[in-house]
């Protein structure tokens, strides 16, 4: 019998090490794992994996960033947020202890990790060690298995994880640390090219062309696979979408624009006759991945944030529902939509 604590950190996958980073660097951007990619969030995918492996209960800690928008830099998390987050995790652990679980998976969501919960739990059981920590060829990951019975009652969870020498468990599956928007783009490319199990939320209308519920594409649009058009997104005539580009939910690409090797995140308007290449557009921000610069576009005819159509983003709703104890129902609703296209 195993449970899990999922910690949604503001600092990506760097977790424990991240705690020692300068404050300015530590809290400069929201967690990418909560943002919508291919119609779903990495966080949602991780929780689905746990649920399908029969992990129960799953406690979620941290509300995630107030803005799911990746390039929106206006939000700053309070400097004590990180320690508060792990304090909350310690409290959740105390609650789970009373349920006499054999093992608890601790996941600090930031990275997207494809792993088999059953395999890592089995590894932990066989070795009979207090802590097992997942790793890949690039180093350790913020995924642990602990034996709740061996943790002293007075010690904080993070202090315990830092103080105890873990046994490494090599994750055999796909790992994307999601440390930067560049990693987000890599997740899209890998997913659309079937290099991982992160599946787009939509219907594959032609090989490599995925469309979400209610998406609209004009007849004259040229789609060169693989591409993804999220639910409620609209692509106007004469556009060209190519090289694993993704248009996230409720976004709009206006007439004649070329989107190449780029991501248009949710609720973003991309103007007429533009050429968006090797970039991530998010509201009125555009990140050029080749040059590594973020631009704020003040001109609403070029790029702007669109109003949400009375819909809350997947990641955010997911977290809100988890907090109110509706984890199973909400994750299914938020991440397993049928399409009518």
């Amino acid at each position: 019998m195993a449970g899990a604590i999922v910690v949604v950190e503001p600092g990506g996958s760097r977790g424990v090490e991240f705690a020692h980073a300068p404050l300015s660097a530590r809290f400069q951007r929201p967690t990418l794992a909560c943002g919508e990619v291919l119609g779903r969030s990495a966080l949602g995918q991780v929780v689905e994996t746990l649920q399908s492996a029969g992990i129960d209960p799953i406690a979620l800690v941290g509300k995630g960033p107030p803005s799911p928008h990746v390039l929106d830099q206006t939000h700053r998390v309070a400097s004590n947020a990180w320690s508060l987050l792990w304090q909350e995790a310690t409290e959740k652990l105390a609650g789970l202890r009373e349920q006499k679980l054999n093992a608890i998976l601790i996941l600090s969501v930031g990275a997207y990790i494809e792993f088999g919960p059953a395999e890592i739990l089995e590894f932990h059981r066989e070795l009979n060690q207090p802590v097992v920590r997942a790793c890949d060829e690039q180093g350790v990951l913020n995924l642990w298995v602990i034996d709740p019975a061996r943790i002293p009652a007075h010690i904080g969870l993070m202090n315990y994880l830092q103080a105890t020498r873990p046994v490494p468990y090599s994750v055999p599956g796909y790992v994307n640390r999601l440390d930067s928007p560049r990693d987000l783009r890599r997740l899209v490319v890998d997913s659309l090219n079937c290099r991982c199990n992160f599946k787009p939320d939509g219907v594959e209308v032609k090989p490599g062309i995925w469309m979400g519920q209610g998406s609209q594409v004009e007849r004259t649009v040229r789609l060169v696979a693989p591409v993804f058009i999220g639910r409620g997104a609209k692509v106007e005539g004469q556009c060209l979408l190519t090289r694993a580009s993704n248009i996230e939910s409720d976004s709009q690409v206006d007439y004649g624009t070329v989107i190449e090797d780029s991501s248009v995140l949710s609720n973003t308007y991309v103007g007429i006759g533009l050429d968006l290449s090797h970039s991530i557009a998010d509201g009125n921000h555009v990140l050029n991945l080749q040059r590594g610069i973020v631009l704020e576009i003040s001109d609403p005819v070029v790029l702007r944030r669109l109003e949400t159509k009375g819909r809350v983003e997947t990641g955010r709703r997911f977290i809100a529902n988890v907090e109110s104890g509706e984890i199973a129902a909400s994750s299914g609703q938020g991440n397993r939509r049928s399409t009518d296209s």
């Binding site: 050429d275 040059r291 610069i293």
Partner: peptide, 12 residues
């Protein structure tokens, strides 16, 4: 500047 260059490219 890189910023101006990106905008000129974006606007084709």
């Amino acid at each position: 500047s890189p910023q101006a260059d990106v905008i000129l490219e974006l606007m084709r």
